[in-house]
């Protein structure tokens, strides 16, 4: 097919391997956006990714960049180690909500507080996907999971943790926004945010995180299409989309 006809094709920053994600899982969308951004910025050959423990444990199979695989929750610490010795490389972590907001809470908060020049892609799908849909720190009140079978009872199981709001209070955080992957418009906005988060890093403007409201059709027990509706109707009210922190220097970035 003539290249002048081409409107969109699979990013070259992706490897040829099909993902292991369930059909309709928006992890794949988030991966694709990161790949597109790395490619557009021309930094694929100087990027080192840090994969988490959780559904994205195999993220290293899909990006055509160097990759390391962190212990559960420790990706920001590993990324710190890499970035400190190789400050001219692009270093990102890709973490789910169990990884980042539960077991890795200490690592993410302090990476942000130190203003580490790393980019964090945070997938919030309100449950532990890889282990079969247990309650996560982001599980909505009343939401049924395999470890909150009667619905999350906030009296005994606490309330969801809002990471973007929390991290935006830290001086070291340069860029911290929440986006959603539930429709084409929001996916476009998410991509722009991811681009800004990487631009923040290459300009040395501090810690950058993009929280992405995502789906988990399999563990939610919904079709992929209904999962997107669930994000729109239930997750966005609990986790409002928005720019939680954009430092003045980052506001000047033109994409």
């Amino acid at each position: 097919m003539a290249t002048e006809n081409l409107v969109y094709e699979r990013p070259e920053a992706f490897t040829e391997m099909p993902t292991h994600y369930c059909p309709g899982c928006t992890h794949g969308v988030a991966h694709r956006l990161v790949a597109e951004v790395l490619e557009e910025m021309g930094v694929v050959n100087k990027t080192i990714g840090v994969a988490p423990v959780g559904c994205a444990v195999f993220a290293y199979n899909y990006f055509d960049t160097d990759f390391v695989e962190a212990p559960h929750g420790r990706a920001p610490a590993m990324a710190t180690g890499i970035k400190r010795v190789l400050p001219d490389r692009v270093v990102f972590t890709y973490q789910g909500d169990g990884d980042l907001a539960s077991i890795g809470m200490g690592e993410i908060v302090h990476a942000a507080a130190r203003g580490e020049n790393i980019t964090v892609i945070f997938i919030n799908n309100a449950n532990y996907g890889m282990t079969g849909g247990q309650m996560a720190p982001t599980t909505l009140p009343g939401m049924k999971t395999t470890s909150s079978p009667n619905g999350r009872d906030v009296e005994t199981q606490g309330y969801p943790i809002k990471m973007s709001e929390m991290l935006s209070t830290l001086e070291g955080t340069g860029y911290c926004v929440r986006r959603s992957l539930h429709d084409p418009k929001n996916i476009r906005l998410a991509k722009k945010a991811i681009r800004t988060a990487f631009e923040t890093q290459v300009r040395g403007l501090g810690f950058a995180m993009v929280e992405l409201l995502s789906t988990c059709p399999t563990n939610w027990g919904m079709t992929p299409v209904n999962s997107l509706k669930f994000v729109e109707e239930h997750m966005i009210p609990a986790f409002p989309l928005g720019d939680y922190k954009i430092s003045d220097a980052i506001k000047q970035i033109k994409i």
Partner: peptide, 17 residues
């Protein structure tokens, strides 16, 4: 680091390079 967990995983990251 924020903890010994953080420290050893920073070591892990830097060692990878």
């Amino acid at each position: 680091a924020e903890s010994e967990l953080g420290a050893i995983n920073m070591v892990y990251g830097a060692a990878c390079t």
